[in-house]
C-alpha cells in the first residue's frame, strides 16, 4: 500500500487588477493552494507563485503580458498584504499562509 505523502499547503489569495484579470479568465480574485516548499525543499517565494500562476492559472496564451524574461513585466505592481513588495524583498519574499498578493497593471491609459 502506498501512503500518499502529506504535503502541507499554503492558502493564498491572489488578486488581479488593472486589466490583468483578462489573462486569468477575467476573474479578479483567486484563492489557491500551493505547497509550502518547492522541488528543492526551499520555502516557496513569490517567484514560485508567479511561475505557478503562469502554468496553472493563466488561461490566456499571451504570457508576455505578465512575465517578461522570467521576471514580472515592468509596469506591474505587486502588493503583498497591501504593502509594496519592494519592502518585502520582492520575489524573494517567502509566502505565508493566508497572504494576499495583488498584481495590478499600471499600463493602461486613462
Amino acid at each position: 500500500m502506498v501512503t500518499a505523502t502529506e504535503n502541507a499547503q499554503l492558502r493564498v489569495v491572489v488578486e488581479f487588477s488593472g486589466g490583468l484579470e483578462m489573462l486569468f479568465s477575467d476573474q479578479k480574485r483567486h484563492v489557491i493552494s500551493i505547497p509550502t516548499t518547492d522541488e528543492n525543499g526551499k520555502p516557496v517565494t513569490v517567484a514560485y507563485l508567479i511561475e505557478y500562476l503562469c502554468k496553472n492559472v493563466m488561461k490566456d496564451s499571451r504570457k508576455e503580458l505578465f512575465v517578461l524574461d522570467s521576471q514580472i513585466r515592468p509596469g506591474i505592481l505587486v502588493l503583498i498584504n497591501d504593502a509594496d513588495w519592494e519592502l518585502e524583498g520582492e520575489e524573494k519574499y517567502a509566502i505565508q499562509n493566508g497572504d494576499n498578493i495583488l498584481f495590478v497593471s499600471t499600463l493602461h491609459g486613462g
Binding site: 487588477s17 486589466g19 502588493l79 495583488l102 493602461h108 486613462g110
Partner: peptide, 11 residues
C-alpha cells in the same frame, strides 16, 4: 487601489 476607486482598464 487604496481608495477603492473603480476604473476602466482595457486597451
Amino acid at each position: 487601489y487604496h481608495k477603492k476607486l473603480d476604473y476602466f482598464s482595457t486597451e
